[in-house]
């Protein structure tokens, strides 16, 4: 999770752990922004990114398929299968695309997103 900013992180309660299917995603509405949250249960990792795919501005990444490329966790957009690193947001099959990523914090079965 690469949150590079000096401003303090504000944590927002997004949902509960069971709201996000294992190996899948869900979308939360936080401060007017659509955030996609991913539960990579097999790896025991959580990630959060923009819900909007930069390719055709579709609000759909939370419905994308997760997976990994070597060790890199990724999500594939359901529209045209652009893939993005969940760690850095970098487009993996299109260098010109990237998405924002956000830190995730899990406490007592609740999912918090840092904006």
């Amino acid at each position: 999770m690469n949150h590079v900013s000096n401003e303090p992180i504000n944590w927002h309660l997004a949902c509960t752990v069971e709201d996000v299917p294992a190996e899948g995603g869900a979308c939360a509405y936080i401060q007017g922004r659509q955030i996609a949250i991913f539960n990579l249960a097999r790896r025991g990792e959580w990630y959060a990114t923009d819900n909007q795919c930069p390719h055709r501005q579709q609000m759909a990444l939370a419905r994308g398929m997760t997976g990994c490329e070597n060790e890199e966790p990724k999500v594939a957009c359901p529209f045209h299968k652009k893939t993005f690193s969940l760690r850095t947001g970098q487009g993996l099959n299109d260098e010109n695309c990237r998405i924002d990523t956000f830190p995730v914090h899990i406490r007592e079965d609740k999912v918090y997103i840092g904006l």
């Binding site: 299917p21 759909a60 419905r63 359901p78």
Partner: peptide
């Protein structure tokens, strides 16, 4: 099995332009 389905199968409907 839900999260391993292609997007259309996962929602049992074809996704359209716009979502």
């Amino acid at each position: 099995r839900a999260t391993i389905q292609d997007s259309n199968d996962r929602f049992l409907a074809n996704i359209q332009k716009g979502g």
